[in-house]
Amino acid sequence: MSFTKTTEQSSKYNHLEIMPVAELLHNINNEDKAVPLAIEKALPQIEKLVDKTVLKLKEGGRLFYIGAGTSGRLGIVDASECPPTFGVPFDLVIGIIAGGDTAIRRAVEFAEDDKEQAWKDLSAYHINSNDVVVGIAASGTTPYVIGGLEKCNENNIATGCITCNSGSPLSAVAQFPIEVVVGPEFVTGSSRMKAGTAQKLVLNMISTATMIQLGHVKGNKMVDMQLSNEKLVDRGVKMIMDEIKVSYEEASALLDAHKNVRKAIEAYGNK
């Protein structure tokens, strides 16, 4: 299938090497402003994927992200932040990158070109029809990601994607495609820029909206967050104070006793 990769088109700017720093920053910022507007156009697509993800996770499934390079790293970042933020198990949202964990820090040559490897990587987690797999690829042509989604479709596993080109092979494979068309990058082809920003924002939307729907937020507070440092303990104490109108000392004692903001609030209400 032939289509236009806007992510690979030449930048609207030229002679970057002679631009003053102020002009470089101004122009990058101008390009970045287009990202949320592009995402706005894709909101109906994002909603469909979130609805499916919530349904599957309520049935005991998991959410997987697969990608290569920047896309893979962004999926891993989003997945890794779900347990501390929402108190969910570490294996509820899982990020997988082409080339394995080594590729998180250092590019693994040609890892993204292996069309069979993603399914092998997913199979290590005993993936099944309860799960959802979201392929992330700015270009929409990454063989690793496309191959993974194709195998998921064959095995009755729900598939989505996040791409920054319209009408890509990846979108054609995904059951729930999300296309955020941000246009050419400031540095031609550097999809870690606008495309990466778009992917990060969409991932935020998917995981946050899903976790809210699953009940891990009360009001606007992260009541199930892990209390993994003093800053978060202090935040938890203040959440309790705000919710049940007690002193800092009382809230701190409740949190110390129950080790969880939600449980502390519920215990106070059940006295």
Rank of each mutant, 00 (worst) to 15 (best):
N220D: 15
L232F: 10
V246M: 05
S171Q: 08
T142V: 03
I146V: 11
V217F: 08
N27S: 15
R73C: 01
T197C: 10
L74I: 10
R105Q: 14
G236D: 07
V88L: 05
E230D: 15
K194I: 04
G269W: 14
A98Y: 09
G189Y: 03
Q117W: 00
N229C: 13
P84L: 03
V237A: 01
D121T: 09
K194L: 11
P89Y: 04
T53Q: 06
M222Q: 09
T208C: 03
Q45G: 09
P169Q: 09
Q175G: 15
L25R: 09
D256M: 12
V187Q: 04
I178R: 07
M241C: 10
L255H: 05
V93D: 03
A137T: 13
H126L: 12
K48I: 10
T142W: 00
I212R: 00
K238G: 01
I39E: 02
E266K: 11
G69P: 05
L92M: 15
P169G: 05
R62L: 10
A68T: 02
G160L: 08
Q213R: 11
A264N: 07
E266N: 13
D51S: 13
H15R: 11
L24Q: 09
L170D: 06
V133A: 10
A68N: 01
V237I: 15
G100Q: 10
P20A: 11
A103S: 14
E59L: 14
L24G: 03
G75L: 14
S80C: 15
K218V: 15
V132C: 06
L74T: 04
V77A: 09
T142H: 01
D91L: 03
G87N: 06
C152L: 12
D242G: 13
P177L: 06
E150V: 13
N229L: 11
I76K: 00
R62C: 06
V217Y: 11
I244L: 01
T159H: 08
M1Q: 12
G87I: 08
V187W: 02
L203D: 03
G236Q: 09
H126A: 11
K58F: 11
S139P: 01
K218Y: 15
E243V: 13
A158L: 02
L25K: 08
K263S: 05
N30P: 00
A68Y: 02
A174I: 07
N130R: 15
L170I: 10
G160S: 07
T70H: 13
L122Q: 11
G160C: 08
L55P: 01
F86W: 03
K5G: 07
M239D: 06
